[in-house]
Amino acid sequence: MTKINFLEQKAQWIRRRTLELHKFAPETRIASSLSPVEVLTTLYYGGFIKFDASNPLWEQRDRVIISKGHGSISLYPILADLGFFSVCELERIGQEGSFLGGIPDPVIPGYETVNGSLGHGPGVAAGMAIGLRAKNNPAKVFVLVGDGELYEGAVWEALMFSGHHRLNNLILIIDANKACMLDFCKNVIDYHPLKEKLESFRWRVAEVDGHSVAQLYDLFSTITTTTTPITTTDAAAATARPLAIIAHTIKGKGVPRLECDPLSHIKTLAASEVDALINSVQSGQIELTEK
């Protein structure tokens, strides 16, 4: 099995586990959590994130900030599978005493920051990136935001800051699933062209099909960082930039009735519907990770 085949199958499996979690806890945001499945799967299983599951705050770990917290239920099965916590915890999601809530917080091993209020991740990530650079720690900081989240002004304060300070150990991944809660983004406030905006803020920008494991794998493979601190007089400074990845995704990916629904954010799937989706995947009727 090639690496790409492995990751594709893993992503399918994560998508099924995510749907199961939604069945256990229908209050979870399923559509938002299905769009970043390939991104998260490729990052964690593709070897692009340094981590120690038995020591989640290991100093040399790459920092992963999940700014779109509500839309990362799909990270729960990944973290459990990789040993951050027991897989038995997954079934207890949303139940009394469980640390797996509808919106993840750092009580969950593997989560770094408080999530749920949008727009904070990029600034905190920038602070961590500056701190790592000051420590000569070569770890990278990944931050996952939604495209609807880009409406928050604090995001742009952080983007300006990170570009100016040439934080090339910072990687922003935009899960561009094209919708926020009440409508498609283009109908709410159309901020495109996004790539040019980010570039004008001194970011390096890559666009990718966020459901293509192969494209994500190739892109993540190109990420390099320097361990040398960058100063304004350094020749390397002129080219050092943080990296923004616009991952074009589909909100509710894998659930046909959610995929084209501008209100998918607030849609809940009935248990029977989830079972049918999972069964159809298992029997090969629907290819959940089809491109």
Binding site: E112, T113, H120, P122, G123, V124, A125, A126, G127, M128, A129, I130, G131, L132, A134, K135, N137, G153, A154, E157, A158, M160, F161
Partner: peptide
């Protein structure tokens, strides 16, 4: 940019500063 002031401060503090 006070919002970013606080978030960057939090990030640096998370790194032990």
């Amino acid at each position: 940019a006070e919002q970013n002031l606080i978030n960057v401060a939090a990030g640096l503090a998370l790194e032990g500063y």
